[in-house]
Write a protein that binds this DNA or RNA. Structure first.
Lengths: 121, 121
DNA sequence: CTAAGACTTGACGTTGGCGTCAAGGGCAAG
DNA sequence: CTTGCCCTTGACGCCAACGTCAAGTCTTAG
């Protein structure tokens, strides 16, 4: 697969893929003319990168985690790191859930008010 | 309350509070010498701002939502906006939860591998 | 009174994950 | 051959939420 194909399949820009390679998150084999070629697993890898970015991890953090995510092989420190990031994400989920629930309360209250208004008028 | 007190109580920097004021998210009363003074509700307001920032909203979006969050009064369009943001946050929660679960699977797999290793040695 | 801390405005610096030209090279179809 | 699309490197732009001086003012405890 060439870069455009991977980009389309993963739903990102080619610029992003080159950036990932620059950060060491993605590797490619070059043809004689210098064009990048990727294996099938590249798409899944990119999806992992996107998911971890969305979870607030930096390139460096992802760089440390991707090998064991992809190969399943991990040193004890890598497992520690995995668990730490998992905990951060879990904390984030709890925070966002709480915020969502508070928003729900606000929405309910606002609706109540607007109903009062329509009764009053 | 003066700015430092609010900052400490809300767990943010004074710089952040001045920035919020600049963005219209927070108001203060000035003393004769120009110093800012805040009411008690400022702390809660700042906490709302922090929560909404953490949920990925921009200053502009927060600016549009804070009035009805704080006063409980909302036009139908504001309620629409509240619901839209609530949905975005909910989607985010679902994504992060999925990522967390995938990470759990990776951790479990890696632990299995390391147990195999310790058995082998 | 005075020293130390808290406050003011102003303005530039930072960071990351790309977007976006710019200027050129490669390759299958007609 | 050439047209048109995909690819390359390089480099600057961007945006938001502050951090971080700088240089001066206010306030308050002793």
């Amino acid at each position: 697969m060439r870069i455009g194909e991977v980009a389309t399949a993963a739903g990102v820009s080619t610029r992003a893929l080159r950036y990932y390679e620059e950060q060491g998150l993605l590797t490619s084999v070059r043809s004689a003319s210098g064009q990048r070629h990727y294996g099938e697993d590249a798409v899944e890898r990119v999806r992992w990168v996107q998911a971890l970015y969305a979870a607030g991890l930096s390139s460096r953090a992802i760089l440390g985690l991707l090998p064991c995510v992809h190969t399943g092989v991990a040193t004890p420190e890598m497992i520690e790191q995995l668990i730490a990031e998992r905990e951060r994400i879990d904390a984030q989920v709890r925070e966002l859930t709480a915020t969502r629930d508070r928003l729900d309360a606000v929405i309910a209250a606002a609706r109540g008010r607007s109903r009062e208004c329509s009764y009053a008028s």
